[in-house]
Design a protein around this nucleic acid. Structure first.
Lengths: 341, 341
DNA sequence: CTTAGCGACTCAAAGGTTTTCATCGAGGAG
DNA sequence: CTCCTCGATGAAAACCTTTGAGTCGCTAAG
């Protein structure tokens, strides 16, 4: 019997079969230009014949590259699985990284324990880079990641100085302007806002867009805005508060679809018809929510899939040591009209 | 200056500092018994002093263990991010695997392309084992995984022979009996069922529980059951169909909360009051849904966190070559009463 | 007194790949 | 015909850890 060896073939085997040295075989695999056409073909043939797969560990050992990327979320877990937004981000990350043949290591980092673990893990060199979703003010995760010599791309603007940071953000402010202008164009006069938690810059940007579109001063903003914490329940409560404070309101721009769903419930309970009495615009355009509220929700679309894809591409460039033209990118948002406004 | 070397310390450095050989240091790290207390302490001190972290690649190379586990979902992507059930599973997986200091490699495997990639990846020895979520009949992912020499634990029963397969299932049938008995105990006489897609064994088990609790024959089952496909929209449609076919129905057991949400919408549109006219019980007890339907949904709880945790523990045992007493485990389900029944 | 046994170590090989450096041969310039 | 250059290739080192075999100093048994 020749080779009934059940073990996985190594580069040595490939080289032997192709009649070249290990070095040449390696060069073929890594697309080095310094290799003759014949050798190239012979090696490729051997690779397919043997079903050869490079040993990741051996490669990582010498290249000091792991072929893995960490995806870090600092959000508390309940939020992560109540808000479909996160499922979408995770899914997009899995897809985009798989397309690059990179392993995705998902970490949920909230408790101090998690943070310590994350620090150990990232400092341990177990990944080549990281995608970080940490929107909150003074987020410990950001501090941890910042001081590590690790390429990182952030989703949205992390709090604090943005100097030298790589990030991909959505045009939150622009989207908010879109939403508010839309309500104005419907002839609404008393427009209020359910904001996200104001320790997140995306929430602040949306608030700023709302404010700018209506040219409100500080006092006016305070009166017509209520924090809904980016949760459904928060949306309900914020809407109640606004109804109490501004009974004559005829439109509301809600900074997330999940909150908008809560707000719609409150409006229904209060007997306000949507959109006749109150026009409602959400943010996210999360179809699983927006298409199932009653009435279906007009919303601002931010393309999370695209955002994550761009983040991944950006990170890959960093890993390849390419110079990136723009460290900070902004993705456009568009208004998706449905029936609520 | 002594050691301004910015590079990560190696085992060699640790050994040198502890005044022992690399081998001894290694044994300390791997908790080998054959090491003196003094050496142990010296090595541990050196480890903390240097902030030493074993090089995963080097270790993987020699142990032929990667320290990573794949988590595979065969569900189509839209479903994965519309149904909070999956977010919960992914979250639980991330948590449980992190607790074991194992990397989680998430893969969504639906298209033939994905399948090919998954095959390559798994066959390539890039992970030590896998957790598989592939509930459908003739699921290609199962065939792929089955013929690989890779330890695998399934979530729920995969279709086909279960011989020798390791799995952790929920007591779907028992839960369905619970739900149906509950409806009976409320005095309901015309109980119908919105099932999941009947190419999933969990859906079949739930249907069987329903059937058993009511002692229905084939014909009766066919009349009072409608497939809702485990989607919200499917739930709406199935409920409509059942209302048309069994106008006098006074209770419905819906095989998932997401479908139940849809069914409730249909019932509301049809002017049936819940629970007065129609009592409704769901399945999953997904709080993000069940607590936000109107009225809040009575549901059967299956503890997905626990399920995933048990799966992970089971897989770890397989990886340690421990003999597992029970290859196939079943987790209990309980009824969580709210207002819909 | 010899020797087997034992515990705690150390040595050194092995694991699979990339990469530097040297070599080899061919072809062109002088 | 000789000397160089240049491109393709091979030999070997390096990456860091685990682990089986071997060493060393003792004690207990024969």
């Amino acid at each position: 019997m020749l080779v009934s060896n059940h073990a996985r073939p190594t580069l040595e085997d490939v080289a032997a079969r192709a009649g070249v040295s290990r070095a040449t075989a390696s060069r073929v695999l890594n697309a080095s230009p310094r290799v003759s056409p014949e050798a190239l073909e012979a090696v490729n043939a051997a690779v397919t014949a043997l079903g050869y797969q490079p040993n990741r560990a051996a490669r990582a050992l010498v290249t000091r590259r792991t072929g893995a990327v960490a995806v870090l979320f600092s959000e508390p877990e309940p939020k992560i699985f109540d808000d479909p937004h996160f499922a979408r981000l995770i899914r997009a990350g899995a897809r985009a990284l798989a397309d690059m043949d990179v392993q995705m290591v998902l970490m949920l980092v909230h408790s101090p324990d998690d943070q310590a673990r994350a620090h150990r893990f990232l400092a341990g060199g177990h990944v080549d880079g990281a995608l970080v979703f940490a929107p909150h003010r003074n987020d410990e995760l950001v501090s941890i990641v910042k001081k590590l010599p690790l390429p990182v791309v952030y989703a949205g603007k992390p709090w604090g100085s943005l100097r030298g940071m790589h990030l991909v953000d959505n045009d939150n402010e622009g989207g908010a302007v879109l939403a508010t202008e839309h309500l104005k164009s419907l002839g609404r006069k008393k427009i209020v806002h359910v904001s996200g938690p104001l320790d997140e810059l995306s929430a602040i940007d949306r608030l700023n867009g709302f404010r700018a579109a209506l040219s409100l001063d500080d006092k006016a903003v305070a009166r017509v805005t209520e924090d809904g914490g980016f949760t459904r329940e928060g949306g309900r409560k914020a809407m109640s508060a606004l109804l109490a404070r501004v009974p004559a309101l005829d439109a509301v721009f809600v900074a997330s679809d999940l909150m908008a769903a809560g707000a719609l419930e409150t409006l229904a309970e209060a007997g306000r018809r949507v959109p006749q009495d109150v026009a409602v615009v959400g943010f996210d355009d999360h179809v699983a929510i927006a298409e199932h509220t009653s009435p279906p929700l007009t919303s601002v679309r931010q393309d999370s899939d695209e955002q994550v894809k761009v983040m991944v591409e950006h990170l890959m460039k960093l890993l390849r040591d390419e110079t990136v033209k723009k460290k900070q990118q902004m993705l456009p948002t568009v208004l998706v009209p449905r029936e609520s406004a």
